[in-house]
Each structure stands twice: as C-alpha cells, then as structure tokens.
C-alpha cells in the first residue's frame, strides 16, 4: 500500500504539491480530480518515485520510496503515463515488457512470463490482439494492451494518468469497468480523470485537489454533498438513482 504523509513535491523553484496526506488502499478505485495544473499528474509521478519529493514521506508497504530501487518499486506499483509512445511492436511484446521488473541481466523472458502475458491479455478481453502491431490498433484497443501490461506487472497498486482521454464513450466505460474489476481483485487503482460523471460513478473514493493542496477526500456522495467539488471545478452536478446505482450528470 502507498501512503503519502505531508507530501511536498514539484520542480526546482516551483513547488506543485503541498501538505498532501493520502493513502491508496487495496480493493479500491481512487480517482484524483481537480482543475488543469492543480498537480494531479505530479501526485501520481511523486507517488512511485519518478519525481523526487521535496518534503514529507512516501511509504510503499511501510518503506520510504527513496530507499527502494526502480526494480523494487516496479514490482509493487505499475504506472500508465498520460502520453505514451507507440512503438512498432506487437501487442504481445508490449505486454511482455510488464514482466521486465522480475528478470535479472541478461533478462531473457521465461515460459511463465509468456503465460502471464497470455492471461493478462485474455483478462482485459484483448486475447486476439497478441500478434497485432500496436500502431495498427485503435485507441481503445491500445489502452487495453497498456492495461494488460500493467496487469502482467502484477503489482498491488496501479496508477493511471487520464486513461480515458481520446477514447470514445463505450471504450471509456470499458476502461472504467476494468478498473473496478482490478479493484475487486484486491488491487489499489488510482486514476486521474477529467470526466466527473464517469469518475463519481465508478470511484470508491475521490480526492479533490486544488492549487496543489488536497481539498477533500471521501466517497463520491460525500464529495458532492460538501459542495467543494462543484465550487472547485466550476460546474453544477446532479445525480439520479437508477436500478444500477447512482448516475451523475452536469446541470
């Protein structure tokens, strides 16, 4: 489990995050919300040590993240950045990269790694894409392949930075449903999202950031009831109860 304690992080001369206390709990989808430039991506990058903190503590299974090697962190946390390059390799090969943290030099992938890749691709419903080249896939299919890579990495925590951007609505719903399934398997899923209705519908908990500070953390209902979400994001939201639970909409 990742715990952030009084975290301050940012860039030289420009602190982005201040005084963040937050934990990423297994079995839960946590969405990080907030306006552009409030530090959502910085929060994810600092959480797995890609960006060095300036103050506070980041604990990964109780150990300070700065004391762990890139390999140790990669065995505990998977990270899907917002922008990714699309190399001209097969989807299967891409997912195989998720097994990299488990190998030592001169890293040769083993039979069990290939089996893991097969299972991960089947799990996200992309088994038939194994031998297809990445540039030939649609945005939604690529996103599934990236998710399968994170799954093959077999980590307890999965961090995703805007995983639904550029996807059509049905693909967005599919990605969110996959995130829920990952949480049901006992993983901690942390997602930066812009679509509030999607976020509130699928999140177990939501964290609202504004100006680099954490305004509020709680269930979607709590966030909506407090009024901060509408104030910070500058929108009005409504919700309606359906047979499948609460659905949120912009008013």
């Amino acid at each position: 489990m990742i715990e952030l304690k009084n975290l301050q992080a940012g860039y030289p001369g420009r602190p982005v995050l201040e005084g963040i206390d937050l934990d990423f709990r297994p079995g839960e989808v946590l969405v990080v919300l907030g306006p552009n430039g409030c530090g959502k991506s910085t929060l994810l990058r600092a959480s797995n040590g890609l960006l060095a903190k300036t103050e506070g503590e980041i604990l990964l299974d109780g150990l300070p993240v700065e004391r762990l090697s890139a390999k140790d962190i990669a065995q505990k946390t998977a990270y899907l950045p917002q922008s990714r390059s699309v190399p001209n390799i097969t989807a299967g090969r891409m997912v195989l990269h998720g097994r990299f943290p488990y190998l030592n030099y001169p890293r040769r992938y083993r039979r069990e790694d290939h089996e893991m890749v097969e299972r991960a691709l089947a799990w996200v419903g992309a088994g038939e894409l194994t031998s297809r080249m990445l540039p030939q896939l649609s945005g939604g299919q690529r996103q599934k392949v990236y998710l399968a890579m994170a799954l093959a990495q077999n980590t307890q925590t999965i961090l995703m930075d805007e995983p639904t951007t550029y996807l059509d609505v049905s693909c967005q719903l599919e990605v969110m449903a996959l995130a829920r399934r990952l949480a049901e398997e006992g993983r901690a899923v942390v997602m930066v999202l812009h679509d509030l209705t999607l976020a509130l519908r699928y999140a177990h908990r939501a964290a609202l950031l504004s100006g680099g500070r954490l305004c509020r953390v709680g269930s979607p209902e709590e966030l909506l009831a407090g009024g901060e979400l509408e104030r910070v994001m500058g929108v009005r939201l409504g919700r309606a109860e359906t047979e499948e639970g609460w659905r949120y909409f912009y008013r």
């Binding site: 090697s69 890139a70 950045p81 990299f100 001169p106 992938y109």
Partner: peptide, 24 residues
Amino acid sequence: LSLSNELDLLLLGRETAQSLGLPA
C-alpha cells in the same frame, strides 16, 4: 545485443521505462 530488452523499454519513453524498473 545483451541489452536489447533494455533498449526496447527505452523506446516506450523514459518515464515508462523507469516505472517498469529500468534505471533509465
């Protein structure tokens, strides 16, 4: 040739490579 897997990871971008455990 012995570092070809590492080179493959760098093709994904430095941050992704590092998040996969490569001291990029």
